[in-house]
């Protein structure tokens, strides 16, 4: 069953002024329970506006949005509970940190949910452990941590709320490769453990290709395509035309095809490429 569903979702900024701009235009989507969705699209394509609708931070100009088949705006006073079910981690989430200790900052969301002390403690410690934050860090001030660690703390704060849908806006922006891998490993581990639905906005095709089940490509306030990862990257040329990139390894294989080396399959991760090449070599009787 679809956990999130949008129907003709439209949002217009500054309606009725000369600055009027349609950020998302009649978007229809269905996101299934437990999926990992990658969201791509260049700046201004409406990604950030779209994800802020999922937890009710923005209210659509027209159209509906359903969480578990229920219209999230059916009861306006219930919108806060939607925010606990759909956790949103903004871009550069480390800038929202404010508490004196890491523990308190991770606990902030849980506290707002009205959980009791024992449950909060259990969740904070568990999330910190899962995400790989050493326990002695919990009593430190978050402002003493490194940039990458701060970001992990901010993400942990939302994960601890155990939302059914976790949305992350560019979780790896401006981190070094090691920090980026660490963030994605954490998200992957979190998904494995909780089976919650995850939506990730990212510019890094490599990262999305590695673990998204389906990819949503946004362009000009609308859905350009929304399909399985493999199918999306098989449309490499169209995607390049709207100013986005496909993974480098996909480009390599597309180029190889031009030289007559057709592997017959779409390649979008380096691991898969290695496997495919080795298999091919073996078939031809070459062992290395």
């Amino acid at each position: 069953m679809a956990v999130l569903k949008t129907e003709q979702l439209t949002y217009v900024y500054s309606q009725g002024t000369p600055f009027e701009k349609t950020a998302i235009d009649h978007v229809n989507l269905e996101i299934n329970e437990g999926e990992i969705i990658g969201i791509m699209g260049h700046t201004g394509s409406g990604k950030s506006t779209l994800i802020q609708h999922f937890n009710g931070l923005l209210k659509a100009t027209s159209g509906k949005i359903y969480l578990d088949g229920k219209d999230i705006w059916a009861d306006k006073s219930e919108i806060r509970s939607v925010r606990f079910k759909v956790g949103l981690v903004f871009q550069y989430p480390e800038y929202q940190i404010f508490e004196e200790t890491v523990y308190k900052d991770i606990a902030f969301g849980c506290k707002n949910m009205g959980l009791d002390e024992a449950e909060i403690k259990r969740r904070v410690i568990e999330t910190a452990y899962d995400i790989g934050l050493p326990e002695e860090i919990l009593e430190k001030s978050p402002f003493e941590l490194s940039g990458g660690q701060k970001r992990l703390v901010a993400i942990a704060g939302v994960m601890a709320m155990n939302p059914r849908v976790l949305i992350l806006d560019e979780p790896s922006a401006s981190l070094d490769p090691a920090g980026r891998d660490r963030i994605f490993d954490c998200i992957k581990a979190y998904h494995k453990k909780t089976k919650n639905t995850i939506l990730i906005v990212s510019h890094s095709m490599e990262d999305i290709a590695r673990f998204a089940d389906r990819i949503l490509v946004m362009n000009n306030a609308g859905v350009f395509c929304f399909d399985e990862t493999e199918k999306v990257f098989s449309r490499a040329e169209e995607i390049s035309k709207i100013g986005l990139d496909v993974p480098q390894i996909t480009k390599v294989f597309l180029e190889l095809k031009k030289y007559g080396l057709d592997f017959g399959k779409k390649v979008y991760t380096v691991e898969y490429a290695k496997e495919l090449i080795l298999k091919n070599l073996r078939e031809r009787g070459i062992v290395c």
Binding site: R80, R83, P93, V158
Partner: peptide, 9 residues
């Protein structure tokens, strides 16, 4: 927005 997303009133 970020604090609202964490359930702050």
């Amino acid at each position: 927005s970020a604090q609202k997303a964490r359930g702050a009133e």
